[in-house]
């Protein structure tokens, strides 16, 4: 029994040594440091960037998937590329996007008085009988945001149709999701 126990211990030690060498020296178990998970024309999004953004976003939206985060990153790149084309400059990407949104999207938003009135009439119950004047500005803000989002979506769809966009997140390594036949 003693010998068996001793043998077991020796085996454990040996297997741990083997594990050590296989983990830290064996080429076959090479670790992926980084790779491309998507690109928009010549701008790449790497796996490490995606993981970082995913972790950050998950703290705010726990249900979000990695695919959704990547999609948002691609859209952001599309808009940033267009902003660069228009020579919009700012210190941070967020500032560039804000300025781009002001110029290319918000400048086109038009909320007409009759739209506000029509929205009020349709949803009068929800306002609990509050007079039109007291909720008018709130409705205008709401409709402005709706139109802004709609225009932004259209803008992204248009930019996407013109750009070379590839999502390689689920492509096996070494294939690059080329879409080759």
């Amino acid at each position: 029994m003693k010998t068996a126990n001793y043998k077991l211990k020796i085996m454990i030690l040996l297997s741990l040594f083997t594990l050590h060498f296989s983990l830290f020296t064996c080429e076959a178990n090479a670790e992926l440091i980084d790779r491309v998970v998507a690109f928009v024309n010549d701008r790449a999004i790497t796996l490490s960037e995606l993981k970082e953004t995913y972790e950050r976003t998950r703290k705010l939206q726990p249900d979000i998937t990695m695919q959704e985060v990547l999609n948002t990153m691609v859209n952001r790149l599309l808009l940033l590329n267009d902003a660069r084309r228009l020579k919009i400059e700012a210190k941070t990407d967020d500032e560039i996007l804000n300025e781009y949104e002001e110029l290319k999207v918000r400048a086109l938003v038009r909320v007409r008085e009759e739209d506000i009135e029509s929205y009020y009439k349709k949803n009068e119950k929800e306002f609990g009988g509050a007079p039109y004047e007291s909720v008018r500005d709130k409705i205008e803000t709401l409709l402005t945001e709706e139109q802004t989002n709609e225009l932004l979506k259209k803008q992204i769809a248009e930019l996407r149709s013109k750009a070379y966009v590839k999502i390689l997140l689920n492509a096996p390594p070494g294939n690059g999701g080329t879409g080759r036949p």
Partner: peptide, 11 residues
């Protein structure tokens, strides 16, 4: 490029 993958051993 379509993809660039960088691998390294543990060391």
């Amino acid at each position: 490029f379509n993809d660039i993958e960088v691998y390294a051993n543990a060391a």
